[in-house]
Design a protein around this nucleic acid. Structure first.
Length: 186
DNA sequence: TAAGTGATCTCT
DNA sequence: GAGATCACTTAA
């Protein structure tokens, strides 16, 4: 398996939008149920604090979202629509409830499909991103040019009202195929 | 386009 | 305890 630099708390402790943007191209690495997976993250969404009406923490602290109020760099996994596990990583300073939703990685698109593919369930909820927990994030040196990043509104949060549902908090990385020069310059 | 699915939250 | 809601996916 390729070695990479494991992202630590400091990476996730910064602003949620910054973390979201910089997670693109980082590798989501899992060692769960004896299965090893490493996929470059291609799509994320930021959920930024109590004022963000789309953020689970907007209505205050509950047993489910309490992990968002804690230390950054910890997974927040919850069941959506009774069917799909959705994977988030807590961001920002301690007690500031924010997180980044991982929506796609590698060839897998869709947050529910991603967790199913990797084997993520409630078992990972509230656990820190670290090899000891079987799920972490690595920087393997992939560079993501700004021109390959698209920002759009988040998906499926129309209930958040016109202001918050339209914020461009979704980041999508579409790697451009390398141009193959047909003839030499000169 | 609409159903499936069940935890979670709010209100009684 | 009941009812509404929900950061999705799949089958038509």
């Amino acid at each position: 398996m390729v070695e990479g630099r494991i992202l630590k708390t400091e990476f996730f402790q910064r602003g949620t939008l910054t973390v979201a943007r910089q997670l693109l191209g980082k590798h989501l690495v899992a060692s769960l149920n004896g299965k090893e997976v490493a996929l470059p993250i291609t799509e994320v969404e930021a959920y930024d604090g109590p004022k963000d009406r789309a953020c689970h923490a907007h209505r205050g602290r509950t047993p489910r979202n309490a992990v968002m109020f804690g230390a950054p760099g910890v997974w927040y996994v919850y069941l959506c629509y009774g069917v799909h596990w959705l994977l988030n990583i807590v961001t920002g300073p301690e007690s500031y409830p924010a997180a980044v939703l991982v929506r796609g990685a590698g060839h897998v698109s869709g947050p529910g499909r991603l967790t199913r593919f990797v084997g993520i369930t409630r078992d990972q909820d509230r656990r820190p991103a670290h090899p000891a927990t079987g799920l972490w994030v690595e920087d393997r040196g992939l560079r993501v040019p700004r021109r390959e990043i698209e920002r759009t509104p988040r998906i499926g949060i129309g209930y958040a009202g016109p202001v918050w549902s339209e914020k461009p908090f979704r980041y999508v990385w579409t790697p451009q195929p390398k141009s193959t020069p047909k003839q030499k310059r000169g």
